[in-house]
Amino acid sequence: MVRFKNRYFVLEIVHPLHASTHRSVQEQKLTSQEVYHSLKEEVHKSHGDYGSAAFSISCNVKYLNPYTNTIFVRIRRGPHRFLATTLPFIKKIGKQDNIFLNTLYVGATVRNCHKFLRNHNRQQLAVLLKKITHPEERKKLQTSLLRACVLENVETWNTQTPMQ
């Protein structure tokens, strides 16, 4: 039988830079349903009935991280072009109004997407380390970085406070 192929989009919801992230997590917690419906609506606007129909039979929101604003969307190869060309036009998802989506990675397997996201998050931690100036926050961040890279001593694991 002909191979059943998928495309997995790793998306990041980008808020305005000056907006505080705490508010967006607590007040406007995203659900995968909201994401699905927002995407479908936009695909309908760009590609009409055919686009949204193709989207509805093959698209799933596979992973959603409200803290890092990362989404995995799975869609069959073929209709994936409808989604890909619609993504730049999306300006709101669910209740979150002033946002846009940034495609970080497009993979053929969810495993590769996870691999990418792991490396991406590590990089983001390093970037945050450059930006955060508050000493306590810096210390917390350094601890979590060490844990991520498994460089910490095993004995000290139990004594450390968990990351918040």
Binding site: P16, L17, R81, A84, T85, L87, P88, N98, I99, F100, L101, N102, T103, L104, V106
Partner: peptide, 17 residues
């Protein structure tokens, strides 16, 4: 404004469009 900029892969998808 800052929210008008899109990521490079999204802009490449615009090219496809």
């Amino acid at each position: 404004e800052a929210m008008d900029v899109r990521g490079p892969y999204d802009v490449a998808n615009l090219g496809l469009l």
